[in-house]
Design a protein around this nucleic acid. Sequence first.
DNA 1: GGAAGCGAGTTGAGAGTTCAACTATTTCCC
DNA 2: GGGAAATAGTTGAACTCTCAACTCGCTTCC
Lengths: 154, 154
Amino acid sequence: MDDTRWLDAEEQRTWRSFITAHRLFFDRIERQLQTDSGLPHAYFEILVRLSEAPDRTLRMSELAASSLSSRSRLSHAVARMEEAGWVRRSACPTDKRGQFAELTDEGFAYLDSAARGHVEEVRARLFDVLTPEQQKALREISDAITESLTDEGR
Amino acid sequence: MDDTRWLDAEEQRTWRSFITAHRLFFDRIERQLQTDSGLPHAYFEILVRLSEAPDRTLRMSELAASSLSSRSRLSHAVARMEEAGWVRRSACPTDKRGQFAELTDEGFAYLDSAARGHVEEVRARLFDVLTPEQQKALREISDAITESLTDEGR
DNA sequence: GGAAGCGAGTTGAGAGTTCAACTATTTCCC
DNA sequence: GGGAAATAGTTGAACTCTCAACTCGCTTCC
């Protein structure tokens, strides 16, 4: 039996447009950050979250949640960025299982310089090509998608 | 001098909404395909393009272009899918540098079964949460982004 | 108070992607 | 015709991500 709710022609086109734009856009964002700053976008996001935290410090699990990383990914990422000198880890005194991650001054400076090219790219490839109405629509669409993926579990 | 055109608060929120939705959505799509069919989404796309080609066959470079893969990625991917028996490669008679990739019957059957769960997920997480107007807006937004990334070269 | 279970974080293996280098062929053009 | 440059495709190394296993500390509850 086939009760799959396939996409109709219209939906098909929308879906392909979306996929195409998504791939091209994020490939570009990724490459810009990678070539100009040697940083994957996921790492950039982690640094941003840290930079906005009080004392530029967060528990690993909070950092994972706020940067939408798995714990595993974050562990690997922080390990690598600690080697690079951008992040420092320290033990949590009240919970001996815990670890703090702190953005170093060097990491902050690095993030600051990386952010410039990144923002330029985002502006040029996203905001500059969308009307204000489209920007508003994009936010509402994004929020709707996010809501469906966070609220009701799986 | 700082002539970076930073994002204002409004843009900042839009950008974060977009990033968040993007990550959650595609992580989900990726995981659904991976766990239910053992297939990365990029591989799925490659198989789809092949399945729509005449004789289910395409030159490697055409396949790369249509599936938005780099040549390298495609080479690796096809190598792996050839091992799995879903794709077959053959030499091009008119251009000895060339290779054809052909979707096998087994690959077609596999794709067909994988597509069901995938479509369900796309529908549940995208189309079901958007109004018709939002779907239309999403397509226009996507097309605008795509255009800026394909037309004007870099 | 001690065992069972939960939570925080790490680790290693396996897989995909990218980049640069490489081979082989074809095209360009003098 | 022949050499330079472009094109097709592959390969291997480096890196990131995921998943499952694992360690260690906290909590619960009898």
